[in-house]
């Protein structure tokens, strides 16, 4: 399974990458929404995208809207991983097509449990 980690912080990408590899994902990275769309073009498809909200060039919310406007990535599960913790923001992201949501700071266990909730691992 493939996961795309989209965050402008290299440290966060590293932490998430380590956790995801640990549960069997092949990991790809992008530093913002634009890069993420390019990366998706290159690799064709991903099973999971972990998306930060606030990033330069294209933010995570716009990335979600963009991938959800096209049919090709319809089955990709999208999880926001962000400091944006207002309920209205969460609802906005879920309505735009995000499937799950993690608020920073998070623990490794939380990431694994949420991926279980998404049905990607047993």
């Amino acid at each position: 399974m493939r996961a795309l980690i989209i965050d402008d912080s290299r440290a966060i990408r590293m932490i998430l990458g380590k956790t995801l590899r640990g549960i069997g994902f092949e990991v790809f990275e992008a530093g913002n929404g634009c890069e993420a769309l390019e990366r998706l073009q290159e690799i064709g498809r991903a099973d999971l995208a972990l998306v930060d909200w606030n990033m330069p060039e294209m933010n995570g919310y716009d990335f979600v809207c963009s991938v959800r406007s096209k049919a090709e990535h319809a089955d990709m599960r999208v999880m926001m991983v962000t400091t944006e913790a207002e309920i209205t923001q969460m609802i906005k992201a879920l309505e735009a097509g995000a499937n799950e949501y993690i608020i920073k700071p998070f623990s490794k266990e939380a990431v694994v449990e949420k991926i279980q909730i998404l049905g990607l691992i047993p």
Binding site: I87, L94, E100, I103, P105, F106, A110, E113, I117
Partner: peptide, 23 residues
């Protein structure tokens, strides 16, 4: 706290059955 609310709770239930009190 965020660290605990993230654990095992689907986002859809979080926004439906919880309210923010500060952080």
């Amino acid at each position: 706290r965020p660290l605990d609310i993230n654990r095992g709770l689907p986002a859809a239930l979080m926004v439906k059955y919880f309210e923010k009190q500060g952080v």
